[in-house]
Computed example of a mutant assay.
Amino acid sequence: MTSMEYRYLGKSGLMVSCLSLGGWVTYGGQVSPEVAQMCMKAAYDNGINFFDTAEVYSGGQCEIDMGVAIRKFGWKRSDLVISTKLFWGGKGPNDRGLSRKHIVEGTDASLKRLQLDYVDLLYAHRPDPDTPMEEIVRAFNFVIEQGKAFYWGTSEWSGQQICEAHAVAQRLNLIAPLMEQPQYNMFHRDRVEKEYLPLYKNFGMGATTWSPLASGLLSGKYNDGIPPDSRLAIEDNAVMKRLRESLESEDGRVKIQKVAQLGHLAQQLGCTTAQLSLAWCLKNPNLSSVITGASRPSQIEENVKALQVVPLLTEEVMEAIEGVLMNRPVLDYNFRSS
């Protein structure tokens, strides 16, 4: 069995498995609670200690399924790092956004579904331009002071918005956001590799990234069309619908050609295209954890093998990958993270 690597979450003393398991699309929706439980057990058995969900995933059912799994297997709470995210909590006027009311009530509702006393990480799932930053920062601090979360962070916030939250926290002597949860993969790089660079250095921000396989595109499984049991085949998910349509565009066809080329590189290294894509993400020293999805336990076993591929990604191999991707972000200032 591959030995899991643990990394500090940003500048904190909290250690998270460098690969983690998220429930977006899959748990509470695409697969049964029993399959979700077996996936979580496979992740735990392989050393994954970080499990990510959100109040909006399958209308809260994802949190319920994950909570049932945690209780079923009797895992020691201190061995787990559980995160959830707040923004879309329901249809009522105060069930969405980042008002103090929704952050406090949304946290309580998530904990009830998870059957937990606290989560380790609590994210603002999106920025909320309608709520003052001071209200947002104070509300997350209130939840932390109540012992219902240990750290708070953001997801898909701009560098400027994160800086504003830090400025407010510093002025009020409050806890600032510790981590960001952005999308990051071979086709989606600029924010993590360029926009956030000053944040890693100045604030010690950790990154827990999602969609490392670009919703499966970088696994190579869409090279010859869309398999009926895949995420992209899900009819009633607007995100998946957009992704399906993008695959049929000229840009989508170019990406599929690039995935095929990456497949040849992976073959030379003796790994799968998915393992190469995950290992490429793990090479980024600013990432604390790469959040993966899985609809069956065997996918987790395969994903964890990406750890064996990381040492194979020499400078020469990384340059060969860049030669295929042709999308390296251009830094407009002489800045390198330390």
Rank of each mutant, 00 (worst) to 15 (best):
S277L: 05
G293T: 01
T273P: 06
T273K: 10
Q308W: 02
A279D: 01
A279L: 08
T273F: 11
Q275H: 06
Q275L: 09
I300Q: 13
S277C: 10
S298V: 13
Q308V: 02
R296Y: 12
E301N: 08
G293E: 00
A274F: 06
L282D: 04
G293K: 00
W280T: 05
A306L: 05
L313N: 02
S289P: 00
K283P: 00
N286P: 02
N286K: 11
N284I: 07
V309W: 01
L287N: 07
S289R: 00
A306Y: 06
P311N: 06
W280K: 04
W280I: 07
V290K: 00
N303Y: 05
N286M: 14
E301K: 15
L276P: 00
P297D: 06
S289E: 00
L312E: 12
P297I: 04
I291C: 00
L278F: 14
N286C: 13
V290I: 10
N286R: 11
A274V: 06
L276F: 13
G293Y: 00
L313E: 03
N286D: 12
L287S: 09
N284T: 09
C281A: 14
S295T: 10
A274L: 04
Q275F: 11
L313Y: 04
E301V: 11
P285S: 09
V310F: 08
L278W: 07
S288R: 05
V310T: 09
A306H: 06
L307A: 07
S289H: 03
A306E: 03
L276Y: 06
V310N: 04
L282A: 11
K305D: 07
S288Y: 09
V309H: 01
A306G: 03
P297R: 07
S295W: 07
I300H: 15
I300S: 13
K305R: 12
V304Q: 06
Q299E: 15
Q275D: 08
L278D: 04
L282C: 10
N284V: 12
A306D: 02
I300A: 14
R296E: 15
A294M: 05
G293S: 08
V309I: 15
L287R: 05
W280V: 07
S298F: 13
E301D: 15
P311T: 05
S298R: 12
V309T: 06
T292N: 02
E302R: 09
L313K: 07
P311S: 04
L307S: 09
V304T: 14
L287A: 08
L313R: 10
L278Q: 02
S298E: 15
C281N: 12
C281Q: 01
L278P: 01
L287K: 07
V304S: 12
I300Y: 13
A279F: 03
W280Y: 13
S288I: 13
K305C: 05
P297T: 09
S288K: 03
S298T: 10
S298L: 14
S277T: 04
Q308T: 09
N284K: 13
Q308N: 11
C281V: 05
A274S: 14
